[in-house]
């Protein structure tokens, strides 16, 4: 059937909308290259001074480092617990298991502001406010459901007979897990880890409550910069934040392609 005029018009509109979804974020790039010392678009010449300032600033660099440490640590924790849990629920595969899955996905659907209150309330008496363990644990809880989802999706395509064959040939539960199940769902685990990393790397609402002076992540410092709305270094930081996110996106896209191939051949 030939597409109608309305349908073609709609397709054009959709392309405009999609470009409009991505384009505004790119505005941070020209702003970060301004030669002026206040937030503005460059008019005559471009300058890298704000990047020099960003990478020369002890404060911004410590925020980079702290964000990286927190994101890596919470990614490891979330990937380990999330993957184990997904395998566990896959093995259980019962009504109770599905209820449990819904409960464990709650950190994903409950508004972050409520999570922030909950962590804050718990961490103040424990002395975990403004500390690495506090932020790492909080980000782990928020990120683990993402791992649970991606690994569960991988397991849905995993042939349960492979596990039975391995057990039938005498392998222990642990060996089966390490040598049969984990290799089979590796792309899903990788994708989950990337999600977990991004979710911690970009996290701001919970971090606003939990970080005060000594632990100050990149989004936390950007938040201040955005509130003050004067220093163009924030634009340079935004570009760096975006680049890291997009690199992670590429890794995820490649993992997804590998997963699709694996399903086709498997």
């Amino acid at each position: 059937m030939k597409p109608s005029t309305t349908a073609r018009l709609n397709t054009t509109l959709a392309w405009v909308l999609l470009v409009f979804l991505v384009a505004p974020a790119l505005v941070a790039i020209p702003v970060s290259l301004t030669s002026k010392t206040f937030l503005s678009f460059p008019t005559d010449e471009l300058s890298l001074q704000h990047y020099r300032k960003l990478f020369g600033s002890a404060e911004w660099m410590s925020s980079f480092w702290q964000s990286t440490v927190i994101a890596v640590a919470s990614t490891l924790l979330a990937t380990a617990t999330g993957t184990l849990c997904a395998i566990g629920l896959w093995r259980v595969s019962s009504k109770a298991g599905e209820v449990m899955r819904a409960v464990l996905l709650l950190p994903l659907v409950i508004p972050p502001i409520i999570a922030a209150m909950a962590f804050y309330r718990l961490f103040v008496p424990l002395g975990l406010i403004d500390s690495y363990p506090g932020l790492i644990l909080a980000h782990t809880v928020l990120a683990a459901p993402l791992v649970l989802i991606t690994v569960s999706a991988s397991l849905a395509g995993f042939d349960v007979r492979l596990e039975q064959a391995s057990r039938g040939l005498g392998a222990s539960g642990w060996t089966t897990m390490r040598r049969v199940i984990l290799p089979g769902i590796k792309p899903g685990v990788m994708a989950g880890a990337v999600f977990a990393f991004i979710s911690s790397w970009d996290e701001i609402v919970v971090t606003l409550f939990l970080s005060k002076f000594s632990v100050y992540t990149l989004p936390r410092r950007m938040w201040n910069g955005i509130r003050e709305n004067t220093d163009p270094t924030v634009a340079a930081a935004a570009v760096v934040l975006m680049v890291v996110t997009l690199v992670a996106f590429l890794i995820w896209a490649l993992a997804a392609r590998a997963r699709a191939k694996g399903l086709k051949h498997g």
């Binding site: 970009d202 701001i204 950007m222 935004a238 996110t245």
Partner: peptide, 18 residues
């Protein structure tokens, strides 16, 4: 669609400010 989905809300809000 996915790229826009992935860009940090903070970066996007900052851009709108500009």
């Amino acid at each position: 669609l996915l790229v826009s989905f992935w860009i940090s809300v903070l970066v996007r809000t900052f851009s709108w400010l500009m």
